[in-house]
Design a protein around this nucleic acid. Sequence first.
DNA 1: GACTCAATTATGTGCATACATAACAACATC
DNA 2: GATGTTGTTATGTATGCACATAATTGAGTC
Lengths: 233, 233
Amino acid sequence: MSDTNTWQGVQEEVRRRIRSREWKPGELIPTESDLACELGCARTTVNRALRELAGAGLIERRRKSGTRVARHPTGRAVIEIPLIRREVEATGARYGYALLSRQIAPPPARVAYALGLPETARMLHLVAVHLADGAPYLLEDRWINLAAVPGAEAHDFTGQSANEWLLETVPVARGELAIAAQPCGEMEARALDVAEGTPVLTLERSTWGPEAPVTFVRLSHMPGHRIVSPIAG
Amino acid sequence: MSDTNTWQGVQEEVRRRIRSREWKPGELIPTESDLACELGCARTTVNRALRELAGAGLIERRRKSGTRVARHPTGRAVIEIPLIRREVEATGARYGYALLSRQIAPPPARVAYALGLPETARMLHLVAVHLADGAPYLLEDRWINLAAVPGAEAHDFTGQSANEWLLETVPVARGELAIAAQPCGEMEARALDVAEGTPVLTLERSTWGPEAPVTFVRLSHMPGHRIVSPIAG
DNA sequence: GACTCAATTATGTGCATACATAACAACATC
DNA sequence: GATGTTGTTATGTATGCACATAATTGAGTC
């Protein structure tokens, strides 16, 4: 499959030349036309191979200037963000869910700031714990912008987690993820049944719809939890 | 730019139809040819638009069966893994580096396990601290497989961090990243100048070369450090 | 009914060609 | 010399066509 007249073959050949330092970091590589000619394939094919390599960060391309080997081949780890239910079920455990608190309240400063909303915004605050085989798995602390998702006010989140309801209901345009290690607060300690101050891996997600901010959620995992993902290089 | 005879335009139109529930999750969408006809462009153009959407996980494609909207549109966060030096310099701070320890030793069980090496393997153990404006930024605890990187034994890592040397020297084929929150150990506490037990965000990376495991590294960030990245959906 | 084997069909890919676009370079103008 | 104008060039994209490949359908056979 290393035929240089398939785009995968061309890509492999280019990778090889970069790995073998035949083309050094920062160096200009031949033009698409030249490569196509040398490898005996169409420019289109070379283009596709190089386009994907550029997407992966291995090379950098600019019109007219040409294509050069990236100076700092930065690896990338892709973290999947599945439904929590599926994440739990993937481990083979039985999934459970319990709503701990539900109230309409103005957001604390850091939530308002993260979403770019005024602190006077009407928001729905939910706290829920997700369970794996009956044991706490993670704590979900969520704020929903009622202006963007009016339907949430009428919805009772005791049966279905906000996680799932929002995904099914609201179109998501973009979001941001922040990962941090934090000492377990009082609320987390009670809900997860661990000692206060224990290091806890927290994920904070802000998501926006087509126009307005939709929700901010903080997920506090059980101590010892690890996020594992392959690195693409 | 929402012309449906550019691939971006077609992609935007498809996204729109999925968002608006015109095409529902799990549902089959028209064939490439039909779409091309309807949108007034070539099949190739539709193909490119859909190919990328499939890559992003928004739709699922199978030959002959056709293309359907993904049932669980799982978001993805892409975490860049730059050189630590660049990560520091990107914040505007002056970068510094100090090697704390360097010795040849057999790996502890968890390192050997992570790389799939026997505990008798000859490895080079490096501990170094990276500095931002003279203050500790993160602690690097690295094990290098000397069988895979014989050159490392002769190399003195006082001037250049292993991070940089390895990237320049060894071709990396694949890797794995694990993110966790851990209580700060004795060594981290001393090196980072924080209290023992403080929650610390740790990244553990295992990387393999074309054949053999190359290195295992654990990066312990300063308390409060956050990894932030956009979510593609 | 169970199995085999072809026909069908949607996606996947390669190619030649054409034109678009960004960026650089060289020249011309004030 | 600074500024603008006009090539030139490499990448970016659209198109029509052909054929490859995988998976499903259905016909034919035991």
